[in-house]
Amino acid sequence: MGSPRRDADAGVVRARLLVIAMLAGILSVGGAQTAAHGETAKPVPVGPTGAMWSNLKDNAAYLDAFAGEQNRRHVEAESASIPPELKVVQVQRALMCDTNSAIPTTPLNGPCPEASGTVGLNYCDGAEPVLPLWRRTRATPADPWNPWVLAAYGGCPADLLPTMSVEDFRRLPLPAPAWHMQPNKDWVLVNMETIVYSTDTPQQLRTDLLGYGVDVIATPERYVWDFGDDSKPLSTHRQGHPWPGFDLFHVYEQAGTGTITATTIWSGRYRVDGDTQWHDILGTAETTATSAPFDIVERRAHLVATDCLTDPTQADC
């Protein structure tokens, strides 16, 4: 399920960087027998301060605006079939009077007192701000309405749309890794390069989030191959290439039987219907695929009189 948007303040940017750095730290492993070049995680400096101003922070304004909008939609849907004279709750967006009064009010309650406050509109990067949300109730349809009460502060249009969480992203039907190995047979050679490479491509998906349609683009960001022996998995941003221009490979040192498990780590971006902006998903998803078992065999070179393809019946072919 989605959650209120929280990707627009500096604290969240820091959080995102931290998540990315942590993932980089987890995934940056390599083995002596496994080749990929140059990716290391830098340590993330996070110093304890105890002064709460320096903690990472949520965006309470967005959480407020989102919750208010969800409730507004809910109330309007619930009361759509109720005649106005029978309603006991109403919600409406309206201006807030510019006053320093402890109790905010709106022109819905009558003319505003003389302006004395600092009420301003939200700045929405060119978009029309969403006005504060007001709610009024009455005990029964026979009672008079209570005054309109501020329910949520409003915000920007994008604040009212749901956020795709990484959990939402991981529930999408992302494809298994498209990857290949060479030799592409049921055997590979000891002490020779077993080549791997990926042909994953960005995926476009369509899903639903809290009643909103959402476009998602999943992009393969990292590839991990576990060769099933004692070596560390090969983890890289590269897709690799087939022979002869290969750059990702593993050398098995022992004969036997092996399998290779490929993992693709996907980043995601999404755009909610009604929003013009794409947003990054905070976190990644993984898909895996394991090869069929193959033999790891030793081959010896022999001198033969003629090419074995020409005469496979000769000795040592």
């Binding site: 959480l63 989102f66 919750a67 409730n71 329910a151 502060y153």
Partner: peptide
């Protein structure tokens, strides 16, 4: 000060 963006559920 307290608001109820979603009455009985979400409080600001």
């Amino acid at each position: 000060t307290a608001l109820e963006p979603d009455p009985g559920h979400v409080f600001h």
